[in-house]
Write a protein that binds this DNA or RNA. Structure first.
Lengths: 132, 132
DNA sequence: CTTGACCTTCCAGTAGATGGAACCCCTATC
DNA sequence: GATAGGGGTTCCATCTACTGGAAGGTCAAG
């Protein structure tokens, strides 16, 4: 398979597929003319990576997961640990974002949004750091 | 003021302060020896930037907000628009993250996390893209 | 033989810093 | 005067995960 076919099948841009080869996530064969020649297994791995990236796993997590996927003697605990850790990070991020949202939402609501210069948003940004 | 003093007052690392000068957010004076010489106004601007970055505004948003802050004839509507747009992006991000969290959480719960290789997480990652 | 759609590599850029090297400055102390 | 320390300076590289673009090779169709 040429890179375009794999791109169409996995939804990954050709650029990204080349990049994944560059960072040693996949190792497609080469034809005599220098073109990459993807096997079904390569395509499968790329679909795996695409899904893992969609779920927000980092490239390094993806590398680990792909390794576990190909290791028939893996322990599911190892996979779970990677996913649980990722879940933790997402939960942390969610809490941070939620807090941010609440603050911002309050400020936006408090701002008249008219032609006058007075603005609670700017007042908040300019205020001194929390005392104490 | 030297950069260290400003760093201590604003909580921004000296590196970051230099970076902010580099991208033209601030323009501190220079002494004869080449050292930056920060005024109270510079310090104030940096505190403003620090707070704005904490609220997740992009550097370009910060640039706009700082401009509005210094423009006595601004309309609060302009400030509000920047903040409202940012809030929108945060809401979108929150929805995406929440969806991600739900999927991941389900997968982690479904995984036994033992010594056996069978794993619903890997099954999900390896599955074919949604048909239809 | 030409056209157009492929393919290749390599370099640069994105956001927002951060780390480190190499070097200068200033003050205090021995 | 030498030295130690704690500042300061610049510049270049690195991080994440790609993405854009230039310059050029390949291949099938007409």
């Amino acid at each position: 398979m040429n890179i375009k076919d794999v791109s169409d099948r996995t939804g990954l841009p050709a650029k990204t597929i080349r990049y994944y080869e560059d960072i040693d996530l996949i190792h497609p064969a080469r034809r005599n003319n220098g073109y990459r020649d993807f096997s079904d297994a390569d395509c499968h791995k790329l679909a795996f990576l695409s899904r893992a990236r969609t779920l927000g796993f980092s490239i390094e997590d993806c590398r680990t997961l792909l390794g576990l996927y190909q290791d028939e003697s893996r322990a599911s605990a190892d996979v779970r640990a990677v996913a649980a850790h990722h879940l933790d990070r997402i939960d942390t991020k969610l809490r941070e974002l939620q807090e941010l949202r609440d603050t911002l939402s309050g400020l936006v609501s408090a701002c008249a949004g008219d032609n006058r210069p007075d603005c609670p948003i700017l007042r908040d940004l300019a205020k001194n750091p929390e005392p104490g």
